[in-house]
């Protein structure tokens, strides 16, 4: 389970970096969203001492099971909201750029020179 989780994380991170480096602005924006997701999953993995255990377990009082860390999930929730906000802003700016410059190729959005 750990291995597959790590593999999924790695694939997501790699996909995110690859998309971020694309010339198409929409794909690059999606790349940041994928990267944020992969980091959130990494965060999640750090909280669950065994990856498939819920945050609150009944048997915890008996000392039979280790619960996963609830603090991580609170932080991920915040991080998801934050990344969602900046992704929405990024997409809206890209929409405005596509109407003004009539292109989504980042090479052609280059009026800023000195």
């Amino acid at each position: 389970m750990d291995f597959f989780f790590a593999l999924a994380l790695g694939i997501l991170f790699g996909t995110g970096v690859f998309q971020l480096l694309r010339r198409d602005l929409i794909k690059a924006a999606m790349g940041t969203a994928i990267l944020f997701t992969s980091i959130n999953l990494f965060f999640l993995a750090s909280g669950a001492f065994a990856p498939d255990v819920p945050a609150y377990v009944d048997q915890y009082a008996d000392g039979k099971a280790t619960p996963s860390d609830p603090l991580v999930q609170a932080m991920i929730l915040t991080a998801v909201v934050v990344s969602f906000g900046s992704y929405a802003l990024l997409l809206s700016i890209i929409t405005a750029i596509s109407t003004r410059y009539d292109t989504l190729n980042s090479d052609e959005v280059d009026e800023l020179k000195n």
């Binding site: 971020l20 602005l25 690059a28 924006a29 940041t32 900046s86 802003l89 990024l90 700016i93 890209i94 750029i97 959005v109 280059d110 009026e111 800023l112």
Partner: peptide
């Protein structure tokens, strides 16, 4: 353009 650059 500047805003997009900075946000990325």
């Amino acid at each position: 353009e500047a805003a997009m650059k900075y946000l990325f």
